[in-house]
Design a protein around this nucleic acid. Sequence first.
DNA 1: CCGGATCCACTGGGATACTG
DNA 2: CAGTATCCCAGTGGATCCGG
Lengths: 134, 134
Amino acid sequence: MFGPNDQAAEFVERWNAAPTDTTEVCPVRQVLDKVGEKWSVLLVMTLASGPRRFNELRRQVPDISQKMLTQTLRDLQRFGLVSRTVFDTNPPSVEYRLTELGQSMIVPLGHLIRWASENYGEIATARAAFDRAA
Amino acid sequence: MFGPNDQAAEFVERWNAAPTDTTEVCPVRQVLDKVGEKWSVLLVMTLASGPRRFNELRRQVPDISQKMLTQTLRDLQRFGLVSRTVFDTNPPSVEYRLTELGQSMIVPLGHLIRWASENYGEIATARAAFDRAA
DNA sequence: CCGGATCCACTGGGATACTG
DNA sequence: CAGTATCCCAGTGGATCCGG
């Protein structure tokens, strides 16, 4: 049988097999980095409910700066998660939309988010205990 | 029905509901941050196959510095993902082990890692196309 | 409307040396 | 063996102003 631990072992193996000359980074790590970026997941999740235009996203994600919005969208596009379509209207409008790859990522992301939501109480308790001991 | 998109909507809602006075960070974001940290996931996955002592971990994760190993383990412990047990032997030994919470995290993490492994080809293709266009 | 360009503060994380 | 303590640098990400 292939349980979670086998995945773990395989992951560790692949990681350590990755070249350390740092020209290439372990593929999985690149994905984890994306997840760790401040706005990537929020944008992917926002786009999950349908395509948006640039300023629509600004409104729906109020705290993001336009620089970070542009930059994150570019990154997601480069990753193949988001497609960018320019409509030659006046004024111009640009539509951002999840690609199939992007939509497929919602599933594992959803698992992680669900886990986080369900277990945050325990995390908070652990942290409080840790800080009290220290 | 509750598909992935409902999770997405709920996540976005919670995110935006989080206070912006930055004293408290959205719980899910804290977990995503952890995932994004350079060594957290690798250590969790390494510990998935059983408890380890400090220097065992150093050997199994050759590229980590002792500073980052200590720091990451502390963080994971504070998060409630890892337990630390000191045995009063001579020389002293310390055992790190996944808590139940830590073990439960392997599952969603496994989903994400599997997705990354399976889809990296497509990501690489997209990136190559993007860079060629630019 | 959709960005690009610039400046800057903060911090994650590596190298190195030392200790109970 | 299992850490601490310092120094230091590169990169992330925010604010602001400018352009097509």
